[in-house]
Design a binder for these strands. Structure first.
Lengths: 224, 224
DNA sequence: CCTTTCAGTCAACACTTGTACACTAATAAT
DNA sequence: ATTATTAGTGTACAAGTGTTGACTGAAAGG
């Protein structure tokens, strides 16, 4: 009855708050709810591999059996989160590239930007750090693939720089992997400390910056 | 009956295989069984925070309730494993220090030694990598404390080196943390790949070595 | 020798877990 | 308008979970 009214409303004009939704839209929505619920739980101290299907369903406001309409498994849920995470990282990369001073990787602003991005996507990074070493082998592999992509993109960006002319391709791969690892490595510290000590973001930025500068110095002196 | 025989045996002479055990010895033994069981499970693909008390007890050949005679919690078990892990790391450090060419951190032999040590203590390192980012906050903190100790020891070793004369204490701390992180970072890769591809140990060694040399170059050029 | 201590056992509990199955109601397709 | 599809519900069950309390038997202490 009520829905019928809404339906008419949709046909005539779009109501924003309680707008009509197609079946696919609604499905996509609860699917997102499930993924968000899982992310929220991991971001709240639980370990992804120890949270239950039922817990996720409950937090998503859905009955447990409904979970199966979207994922066969918690692992599949995890893989889908990793897909989203990949998108997020690409967005990060794209935004960073557009910013001025990007090619000055040693600029404080770059690291600061990353740190803020982490804070803005706390749950994703929590999930990532957690699953990177603590997830099932399948999930670990998936995460590492994303990180590898990240490192490869970095290679493309710095390959043309004449400062690195003396570094061959294989070594440049390793260098970029080192850079990426260094940035991501202490992200978990940042996330942990952040809750009780918001100023830690400065410490993190400063420390990471020094490490990157040191690596940079090494790279300039490197002869393959 | 049978035990009485053994008891007499102990009084007269020590039998090695089925020797008499004091109550404390036996307790320490099953305690170790529990810890080993947990380590074995984590080393076998399970996540520490998702293995159950009962599972551990079963694998240790002990009834679940017996667990409580040793630990109140799985988390306490974890903390005790971390204590052992700390000992293991100290042993690693000590042995490394005694070896010649230790102060030539860029020697292939050093990294190779570490890699072999990892393989020999597979479960411990698996546990460490897993809990470092995936454990409960308490466990994470405990692991990081151990790693910090490791880095601090490294500081003591390299502080006297004249190559680092230009680096002040604060920066040297950061440098050593970077070195330690770099070594530990890809240990999980080593552990993962090892099973299917035993030659990966060479790849790991070579890559890590290059990273360390690069950092080294950077450190030599560094002016605080 | 007798008594105390205590690591390990056994049985039972109240829950939570993943999953199967039948069902509903609203959307999509005809 | 009728039918088919399907996201989400409800019920049910077997298996596993952490924890309790009372019990046992051998070692430790007197």
């Amino acid at each position: 009855m009520h829905t019928k009214t809404v339906r008419i409303a949709q046909l005539s004009f779009q109501t924003n708050n309680e707008r009509m939704q197609t079946r696919d839209e609604k499905k996509a929505q609860t699917r997102k709810s499930l993924m968000d619920a899982a992310l929220a739980l991991t971001g709240n101290g639980s370990n992804f591999s120890s949270i239950s299907l039922r817990e996720v369903a409950k937090n998503a406001g859905v009955v447990p059996t409904s979970f199966y309409r979207h994922f066969t498994d918690m692992e599949e849920l995890g893989l889908n989160i990793i897909d989203d995470l990949g998108l997020m990282l690409r967005r990060l990369m794209r935004t960073a590239r557009q910013s001025e001073g990007y090619f000055d990787a040693l600029a404080r602003s770059s690291v600061e930007f990353y740190a803020n991005y982490v804070c803005a996507n706390k749950n994703y990074f929590f999930f990532m750090e957690q699953v990177k070493t603590g997830g099932t082998p399948v999930l670990r592999k998936a995460i590492r693939k994303e990180l590898k992509y990240f490192a490869n993109e970095l290679v493309l960006d710095v390959r043309p720089l004449k400062a690195f002319a003396e570094i061959n391709d294989a070594d440049l791969d390793i260098l970029c992997q080192l850079i990426v690892d260094t940035v991501f490595e202490n992200t978990i510290d940042l996330l942990d400390q952040l809750e009780e000590n918001p100023d830690y973001i400065d410490t993190y930025t400063e420390h990471t910056l020094k490490k990157l500068r040191l690596i940079w110095l090494g790279a300039m002196a490197w002869r393959s």
